[in-house]
Every structure is written in C-alpha cells, then in structure tokens.
Design a protein around this nucleic acid. Structure first.
Length: 467
RNA sequence: GGUCCCAUCGUCUAGUGGCCUAGGACGUGGCCCUCUCAAGGCUAAAACACGGGUUCGACUCCCGUUGGGACCGCCA
C-alpha cells in the first residue's frame, strides 16, 4: 500500500514552530517511504480563518522547503461532501438532531463544573420523539456508551479509552457547517491518508474519530502522535515565549536548513549525530527513534546550529541572502549595484564569526560603507600617540607594496613591529580600530586586501588626522 | 474535577537487563591556538524524580507516589 500523509493546519495564524515540526515529520516520513505528502487547509472555522494566513502558511512551508505532492485542498470547498455524509449517518440512526442552544449547553457545563459533576453532554436530545418547533438544530454523533476503544499509536503504543467518557459530539453546527472531528475523518478517508501524524494534543480526540470511521465502515489509519514543543517554563510554546512564527526566524537571519535541523532533533535522534543534510534526514527518519516526552525549545542551540550552517554555506549564496539585511541596515540602497564576487570574498572572512544573517550584515558594514564610526572607547585604548606613530609607518609601507595582497600586507605589519620593537598585536589593534571602528573583526591582512588600497589609505589618513 | 500522555545533566538527547566509573550536543568555567573576535582542539562542573517489587543483576521490566503536560467547545 502506498503511504499517504497530510499536514492540515488551520489558517487562524502564521505557520508556527510546532506546526512546522508536524509538517516536517510528515514530510520526512513520506519522503523516507516514497509516499505522498498532502497539504490540506482546515478552514471550517469560517469566523477565524483568513486568506492572509493561508498565504502565510504556504510561504512558511516554501521557505522551509517542505514541498507537497497534492493540494492545498480547502475544506470550505467541500461542505457539500460533508453534508451528504452527515445525512447518511442521520438516516442510519448514527447521528441525531440536537436542539439545545450553545448558551444552554454552556450554562449546563458551568453548573456541572461548579458541582464537580461530569461535564459531558447529557444526551437529552438523543431519543427525542417530537422535535421542538422553531429551534435551530445541530447534529450530534451517537457515541457508543460501553466498551473500550484502543488507539494503536506508532509512537505511544496502545492507548485505551473507555467509551463511557466520550460524549455525543456535534458534527454539524446549527448554521450547517461541519466541525473538525468529523471533517478530519471524512477528508482523511477521501484523501486516502494511511498515516495520521499530528500533535500530541489530538490524542484525546482520536477515539472519537475512530468511532466515526467505524460508523461508516471505513478502515482506521495508523496514528502517530508527536510530543509537544514547550517554552522555557515548560508550558505549551506560545507568543509569550518569544518568536514562534517560522517567518520571524527568516527575518532574524536564520537559514531554513538550520531551523529544519533544529526542529527535527526536537523529539527525533540518530545516535549522537547533531547535524544532518536533507538527504541524511530523509534516509534515516523513522518513528522508532521519535521520543515520547515533550521538548523545551532552546533558542541558543538553534543559534549555534545556524552558525554551523553559515560556516558551511556557499559564500556566493550567503552574499545573495544577506542583501535584504544590508538594505534593512541601510548599508546599501534597495536595488543598488554591488559587486557580488567581491561581496562573497568579504563574506568568507565573516562566515565563522556570524551566527545569523543579521550579524553577517553588521560585519559587512565596514567593508561596504564609505564612512565608519569609531567607537570612542576603542579609540581611547588603541589610538594613543605611540599607536599613531605605528600607523604612520604602516601607511607608508603599505603605499609602497607592489601587490596589495594579504601576504604583502602581513610583511608590512611585521616590519613596523620590528622597527618599533613591539608585538604584532600592538600594530594590529590600532589598525583594526582605524579600519573597522572597533576592536573585533576578521584578520587584518585579509580584511585589508578585500578593502583594497584606496579604502585602507583613506581610513588610515583619517585617524592620523591627515585629511 | 474527569480522561489521557510523559519523566536521564539547566536544555536537546544516547541508552531497549550485565558493555554505565551513565555517552554526545547546546550553554557555562578553565587551558591551548592566536593580530582582536570568532572558529577549532583539549578539559571541568552537571542527570537516571521518589518508594516498593521482579531478577543473580536494574537507567532499562511491573506497581504506586510525586511532578509536569494535553484534552474535556455549535475551535482546530
């Protein structure tokens, strides 16, 4: 049998970290087994779903490079289908009309809670002989009252539920729209889904859904319930814990490969390996190695991973990716012409120093900008009169070098150090402040080579007050 | 409150009854490298929630306690 899985987000918000991981595990499972990955938009809540969020979710999927084989399907396009399935259940006596209003139900629930009693629907419309006139009706599914339902889960094993705790849930609202627990089953059957891979928070819904499958005589798919992702306080990850939308990480200068790598290790492992290529992920992924316990989202480890991916990334590609951040930084103007070959060279010097594209852009600033600001503290420490004397000599030597390349530049530095009987560091630090305005940067020799002689001369002149 | 799930360093995890003096990674401290900052290398501190069983032997199996989480909607 061909494996078919789906990711079914509801468009009531952006694609968030938890949803992205669910999508990723579905994708990996499908790719590992050569199956199909379906994208389905669960927009039956017409009051909260928006077109913007559908776009946002698709953007997030694309950015993470999680391609789907079918869809996106939308449930709002399928209301007639659901309607006919509801009718079938009613005609077979497996569902019935309920005339209780939401307000009445709410009140009863509240009362039951206060008394510490069972909160489930009392079934008062279950066997109604005469429907009350003039009241809107919802449709409820008739749950079995006795027996046990076992969910056989790929991650958790067998989980048993007493049917007596299940209530007759509403499958069709009084406004004629169907509800989640019903449509999810109808869709999964219509779309021939073989494995339902979703968040742990759905485990309790699963027995209810199994009864719908059975009411129709359908085969129940395999389930895999993924553990939750928690915030630092161990509660479900939410806005309170900082950035949760996937696209926010794009804006913060993260690489999608790094986020994917981080997310997959939240719950899944392969021995001691931490960094995986796409191919390795697809090759090794299996639910056997998915853990059962919830995981705390750790931004620091994600940052480290991102740094690892930046180090390994192709400099030309990084140069492309960093452009929007340079624009945002106002280091360059939108659409400004820039020598990409040269930019890539500059990027190489910064790769192992930048953990995000934002940091990369910040480092690139002094390579590109005409004027730099000099940190007063740095100047105070490294631009004292004796330092300026070194820089004066350095400038002279550098103006005479044949080829303005790192090896030649290094010779000049050593010559100055020797002349003044001092260490290389006492020349390099002042030079660094003159070049970058700061005390930390890539190595001076390669930096100067990439700057080029004119820019180096200009900046030395400036600190020497020679304008 | 009811139902269900979960439980190894601060965090992510390896571990499927003897290989464990519990391994790796992030983070933290130290050292090395070094023109600064990184990167890299070495190193240190840091965990089997607790209590009972089962067993010749439990991190590993069973039960309970405790702790955490999820769900209990005419939301998904």
């Amino acid at each position: 049998m061909d494996v078919r899985v789906r990711f079914a987000p509801s468009p009531t918000g952006h694609l968030h970290i938890g949803g992205a991981r669910t999508a990723l595990f579905n994708w990996l499972f499908a790719r590992n087994l050569g199956g199909k990955f379906v994208l389905r938009i669960e927009d039956t809540d017409t009051t909260r779903s928006t077109e913007e969020y559908i776009e946002a979710i698709i953007d997030g999927m694309k950015w993470l490079n999680l391609d789907w084989d079918e869809g996106p399907f939308r449930q709002t396009d399928r209301f007639n289908v659901y309607r006919s399935y509801v009718d079938r259940l009613i005609s077979e006596g497996k569902a019935y009309y309920c005339y209780c209003t939401p307000e009445e139900l709410e009140e009863r629930r509240k009362k039951a809670q206060e008394q510490g009693a069972d909160q489930k629907y009392d079934g008062r419309c279950r066997d109604l002989k005469e429907p009350p006139a003039g009241r809107p009706a919802a449709v409820r599914f008739r749950m079995p009252e006795y027996g046990t339902t076992v969910v056989d889960d790929l991650i958790r094993g067998k989980v048993a539920f007493e049917n007596s705790v299940l209530e007759d849930m509403i499958i069709l609202r009084s406004d004629g729209t169907p509800t989640y627990n019903f449509v999810v089953v109808v869709d999964d059957i219509d779309m021939k889904i073989t494995h339902v891979i979703r968040g742990d928070d759905h485990l309790n819904n699963t027995p209810k859904q199994i009864h719908i499958y059975k009411a129709f005589g359908w085969e129940v798919p395999q389930f895999a319930h993924l553990p939750m992702i928690l915030g630092a306080d161990k509660t479900r990850l939410s806005k309170r814990h900082g950035a949760t939308s996937v696209m926010a990480y794009k804006e913060m200068g993260y690489l999608p490969e790094a986020l994917v790598n981080y997310l997959v290790r939240l719950g899944w492992s392969y021995g001691d390996q931490e960094v995986f290529s796409r191919q390795e992920l697809v090759q090794h992924f299996s639910f056997d190695a998915v853990g059962k316990s919830a995981a705390v989202f750790n931004p620091e480890k994600l940052l480290w991973l991102n740094g690892q991916y930046i180090i390994k990334a192709d400099p030309e590609k990084l140069a492309e990716l960093v452009i929007p951040f340079l624009v945002k930084d106002r280091t360059i103007k939108e659409g400004q012409d820039i020598d990409m070959k040269w930019l890539a060279q500059a990027v190489v010097t910064l790769q192992e120093r930048a953990k995000t594209l934002i940091e990369l852009a910040a480092g690139l600033k002094y390579y590109i900008a005409e004027e730099i600001e000099i940190d007063p503290k740095a100047a105070e420490k490294f631009l004292k009169p004796e330092h300026l004397a070194y820089l004066k000599d350095l400038k002279e030597l550098l103006s005479e070098t044949q080829n303005f390349v790192a090896a030649e530049i290094e010779k000049a530095f050593h010559a100055v150090a020797e002349k003044h009987s001092t260490k290389l560091g006492s020349i390099a630090q002042p030079a660094r402040v003159a070049m970058t305005g700061n005390t930390a940067s890539p190595g001076m020799f390669e930096l100067m080579e990439i700057f080029g002689r004119p820019k180096v001369m200009k900046r030395l002149s400036k600190v020497l007050g020679e304008n």
